[in-house]
Design a protein around this nucleic acid. Sequence first.
DNA 1: AAAAGACTCAACCGCGGAGAC
DNA 2: CGTCTCCGCGGTTGAGTCTTT
Length: 285
Amino acid sequence: MSATANPELLVSNEEETELRRGPWTLEEDSLLIHYIARHGEGRWNMLAKSAGLKRTGKSCRLRWLNYLKPDIKRGNLTPQEQLLILELHSKWGNRWSKIAQHLPGRTDNEIKNYWRTRVQKQARQLNIESGSDRFIDAVRCFWMPRLHQKIEQNSSSSSSNILNYENSGANNNVPSSLSPPQGEFTDTIAENHCSLQFQDQTRSDQLPFENDNNNNNNNNVNVCYNPIIYGYGMEGVNLEEFPMVETSCGGISNYSQFDYYSQSSENDWVLNNMGDALWNNMDQM
DNA sequence: AAAAGACTCAACCGCGGAGAC
DNA sequence: CGTCTCCGCGGTTGAGTCTTT
């Protein structure tokens, strides 16, 4: 392959046919749509030639799957979809196509773009390395509960079903390991506060969340829920740098992460920098 | 109103896996 | 086996659009 001076054209010397690049025209779209309507999709290289498109098979496939396919959803991702992306990404990482399989009508490209432009942007603004333990915990403990709250707000006006999972096409394919318990998030968020199990008991009094095992405290943590039930992995956690704590938010965290919290004079833990920032940024998404 | 900067997202690229020969 | 082709995936780019100054 060799590019010509015209960036929109690619010349194949072997076949001496001009291959178009760049944005698709209406005419090309129409050709592709009508060809697939008659012959079906697949065998993309052959399809491109047979349809009379001066495009690579790859380009045709991409155009069809990401843009022309009839069942593609348009518009912003719903909070339910965003939540599902966060959940599935925490499980599978950058397996965009796999994640997309659980969001009907959404493409891997769209999800990838969402992650890069929205999620990673938040990480940058907070000076957190996206994918780091700290970021993962931030997502778990602040972002996801906020999405749950959004979902709750949205559905409360239209339905008594807090999560409305049955009615959400985006969630019809949620793996059972990721499915939320019915009604779990109708509870006040404070009831789902993080608990900690300290390996270094001598330092537990400095930590912001009360150990929940005794279940007899009233230190309400505003926005943590318990995503262990969602099948979060614990992979990639650095166990060496700090004494580890396990949070009911599904993460094993090191001490440094809790620099983000502060304690009020009434022994009532409140969210500090990270929580507020994420909270505010969430509203922009 | 205009310029600059930030953001979005469609499209391209390179790579690796699968299957045919 | 090795080679070739096709396909699909994830990473990246850049033109167009939007927002801010």
